[in-house]
Design a protein around this nucleic acid. Structure first.
Lengths: 195, 195
DNA sequence: TATAATAATTGACCATGGTCAATTATTCGG
DNA sequence: CCGAATAATTGACCATGGTCAATTATTATA
């Protein structure tokens, strides 16, 4: 039985998170240095690792929360009615992830940590996203606007696959000339979801 | 105009590669240390980086070559006739990539380096793989065994997407209980390629 | 072949993430 | 309120990838 954390620990953690968020806002994820975080937070290096395990742990918490916020926004609006609308609904999230390859890599790596660590925000986010997709698809199937011959959860996983594909592909071309990820996603979704 | 590399340089490069391959065979990709490689090869650290840019550069060369070998094997046999046969044909490659998450991550990262570096083996491999898929699909379309309503290259990219999806998903569950990647791939391919 | 120009290599040095035995703060039982 | 037990923090130290001015080997030129 593990004890509840003391107030001091919660404060330290909050301080580390807020400092890291500020630094990320200012300089981007790639430029974040653990040494800078602990220096600004006024704690020792070891404290950082005792809280987050490693640097990616901290990033997972912060980026996972941001992803979760996007998912909640997407889920709040009325369900999309076509594949193109799904892609459009995803555009803010996709833009966020496209902003830095490090974000994509980290989310992909943490996306399914078995759910072993119940508090893994990233895992939660992905599960939530799949169930959101599943809900959309069920509704569309009920409305007869897309193929009814496959189970919604399976189709939802396919969306996930194409979403990652489009993101990965986007990083390959040198930035500048290619369409935004949400747009690139449309043909895949249509092929996957229609008839 | 850059000059051709001297014999000495080619020998050094070959030595580094062969030492690294031996170490990988013995201990796996994750355990490879640059210091070990240079020590065994009898060269200085700087030499390593002058040849490969960074550690991933060396890995890209080695793993890219292994992937290319798998692709050539797959391409040598007669074209598969069904989605399930495609999955089966891919199983050796998928098993190879599944063996260590580091391999998957690296291949994904290097898969499309713009083709800017013409000698990037990984990029070559992916292009080759897509064209192999495209060929298979064309033949199957001609034979009428799968949907003829989409262009083969587009369908080939979809295969790539599902292939990565299955691999990524495989790493998430703790190893042991889940089916081999090639098997997990089948339903996606069928849904994607059939009618 | 002597010398200048260029290629290749060297290794001390740095940057950064990560470890862990020792120390300090907090809580708990009596 | 006083130790004893546990939680939290500390910071010197380590591991490993990566840099680059200096050095040595090779090639080109006269």
């Amino acid at each position: 039985m593990t004890r509840a954390p003391q107030k001091r620990r919660l404060e330290t953690r909050a301080k580390l998170l807020s400092v890291a968020e500020d630094l990320i806002d200012a300089n981007g994820v790639s430029a974040l240095r653990v040494e800078d975080v602990v220096a600004r937070a006024g704690v020792a290096k070891g404290t950082f690792f005792s809280h987050f395990g490693d640097k990616d742990g901290l990033l997972a918490v912060i980026l996972g929360a941001q992803v979760m916020r996007h998912i909640e926004d997407m889920d709040a609006a009325p369900a999309p009615k076509t594949p193109a609308e799904i892609a459009q609904r995803l555009s803010l999230l996709l833009d966020f992830i496209s902003q830095d390859r490090m974000i994509f890599d980290l989310l992909l790596r943490y996306s399914g940590t078995t759910g072993a660590e119940v508090d893994e925000v990233v895992t939660q986010g992905f599960l939530r996203q799949i169930s959101m997709f599943t809900g959309w698809i069920s509704q569309m199937q009920a409305a007869g606007t897309l193929r009814g011959d496959a189970n919604p959860e399976f189709l939802a996983e396919g969306i996930q696959a194409f979403l990652n594909h489009v993101l990965a592909t986007g990083f390959c071309m040198e930035h500048g000339d290619l369409p935004p990820p949400a747009e690139a996603l449309v043909p895949y979704l249509e092929q996957w979801l229609l008839t």
